[in-house]
């Protein structure tokens, strides 16, 4: 079965292109019934407010929650991370609907607006252990969220240092911490809980596909547990359709 990519708004084309690079077909999901045809789901980056509104108009939330509850792998990047979180702060007036399931608290636009968007080499030991490759991953953070708290069952996959001026501003609890300590402060940007994977940055915007193959392995593991012989490598990959042109991805 194919991997679904929630195609309401945002970087879904980029995700589908990244999946294609690792040899898997991505399916655009716009309606609840389309979820039945996929075995895993990626919720792309974009504006979480917009995506929540669109999901609400088309009554997608019950189906998405069901999908998460069934234990199928779901990966959220940026806006998708906010969707999966149990609790989000910094929302618009009136709040927004979330899917939930991931036991953590997310701060929307943690790093601030576009002018504070940045790129950083982040260390990803878990990914390196499973996928090999260089020890760090080039994370692109665009008006990115940050994960403030995680539950005990959540595995932290990556962290970045918080800019020192930001730490005091965004988190009143650490206001009085000395400057040295504040500059050492880190915020979580990638987590895994069971079959849920979430990243605050955008692996779909860079050429490195290790996160995508990591996510696919989560799916293969489930299939093996269910003693089903279908593996992703036997996926029917028909590349006969005309190539879909997309934006360039950024090489190192």
């Amino acid at each position: 079965m194919a991997i679904g990519v929630l195609a309401l708004q945002g970087s879904f084309n980029e995700h589908i292109a990244a999946l294609k690079r690792v040899g898997v077909k991505g399916e655009q999901i716009r309606k609840p019934e389309q979820l039945q045809n996929v075995s895993a789901l990626i919720i792309p980056g974009g504006e979480s407010t917009t995506m929540a509104k669109l999901a609400e108009y088309h009554n997608l939330f019950p189906a998405l929650r069901e999908f998460v509850k069934m234990g199928k792998p779901v990966w959220g990047t940026c806006a998708g991370l906010i969707f999966l979180a149990d609790k989000a702060i910094g929302q618009k007036t009136g709040g927004q609907e979330l899917i939930g399931g991931l036991n953590c608290t997310v701060h929307r636009n943690f790093f601030g607006s576009q002018i504070q968007s940045f790129e950083a080499e982040i260390s990803v030991p878990e990914i390196v252990a499973k996928e090999g490759g260089p020890p760090s991953f080039r994370g692109v953070f665009i008006r990115a969220p940050g994960i403030l708290e995680v539950g005990p069952e959540v595995q932290v996959l990556a962290e970045v240092p918080v800019p020192s001026d930001k730490a005091a501003k965004s988190d009143p609890a650490v206001e009085n911490v000395e400057e040295n300590a504040a500059s050492e402060q880190k915020v979580i940007v990638a987590v895994k809980q069971g079959n849920l994977l979430a990243t605050a940055f955008h692996p779909e915007l860079t050429a490195d596909t290790r996160w995508h193959s990591y996510f696919l392995k989560m799916l293969t593991e489930i299939n093996q547990e269910a003693s089903s012989s279908t593996s992703l490598s036997s996926e029917d990959l028909s590349f006969s359709e005309p190539p879909k042109y997309d934006l360039p991805i950024f090489q190192q």
Partner: peptide, 25 residues
């Protein structure tokens, strides 16, 4: 005053990245 020491100015990927996030909107 860029946040990360590695980049003095906003890299192209960050600038274009936001536009990519707005796609389909």
């Amino acid at each position: 005053g860029a946040i990360t020491e590695t980049t003095k100015q906003s890299p192209f990927s960050v600038k274009v990245g936001l536009a990519q996030m707005l796609r389909g909107g």
